[in-house]
């Protein structure tokens, strides 16, 4: 479903991604972790070309992302993305947040889009808040709305960029629950997170990154019980108390 081949990226002189290669199969859940500044957020943003790369190839759902001729907007509409800071549109009601791209990008009619939006809001348990504005919801609620917004587009794959790290601790679980459910339903997911509980529960594979390199790319059993690199051991020791 997602295939990254030998990708490298520089910010000026500084190389943020060094020759990264990995693959996410259909229905797989891959968790990307690593210390801050390791390039994991940058890596996930290359998948829908929010971050351009200088070297390598990215294929998503048989479309070459790195090819200049690719219609990026069309590709992006099939790739759902959830951001660290939710990025709901503050001037639109919750339901309008969910219908905007459906109407403008997928050209669905208003009625159909609203129906879809309400169904998905119901699914994340926020149907009652449909007419409110983002500023009236808690962080956890906003992030669930953001997930619903991405799902409205019927994505073939979902990208999560640290979806819980801007949340107060008591709100983390409501968001993770939605994500776990999504994983059980067979959604292909790539998730940057420090939530190792989530990784243990649903991840098929773990990518461990440091200094722009993918250091480990293994099954979760292997990663948690027998990490190969010292850096991964260090990281796990710090993060799991």
């Amino acid at each position: 479903m997602i295939s990254l081949r030998n990708i490298s990226k520089w910010y000026g002189e500084f190389q943020v991604l060094k020759d990264c290669t990995t693959h996410v199969g259909k229905g797989e859940v891959v968790v990307v972790c690593g210390p801050s500044g390791s390039g994991k957020s940058t890596l996930i943003k290359t998948v829908n070309a929010l971050e351009p790369i200088q070297q390598g190839t990215i294929i998503v759902d048989n479309v070459n992302v790195t090819n200049k001729a690719t219609n990026l907007a069309k590709l992006r509409s099939k790739v759902g993305m959830v951001f660290q800071h939710f990025e709901l549109f503050p001037h639109l009601s919750i339901v309008k947040n969910l219908t905007l791209a459906q109407v403008k990008v997928l050209k669905r009619d208003e009625e159909e889009a609203t129906k879809k939006a309400l169904t998905l809001l119901d699914r994340v348990g926020l149907l009652a808040h449909a007419q409110k504005f983002p500023g009236q919801l808690s962080g956890g609620q906003q992030q669930r709305v953001a997930i619903a917004r991405a799902l409205c587009m019927d994505p073939v794959v979902m990208l999560f960029d640290e979806p819980t790290s801007a949340l107060d601790p008591e709100m983390v679980n409501e968001v993770l629950d939605v994500m776990v459910e999504l994983a059980y339903e067979g959604m292909t997911m790539m998730v940057v997170t420090h939530e190792m509980g989530f990784a243990r529960k649903v991840a098929n594979r773990i990518l461990f990154m440091d200094e722009g390199t993918i250091i480990e790319d293994t099954t979760k059993e292997q990663f948690f019980t027998n990490p190969q690199s010292d850096r991964a051991k260090d990281f796990l020791a710090k993060i799991i108390h």
Partner: peptide, 8 residues
């Protein structure tokens, strides 16, 4: 970015 990611 959120707008771009939605394909707008």
């Amino acid at each position: 970015n959120a707008g771009i990611a939605l394909g707008l």
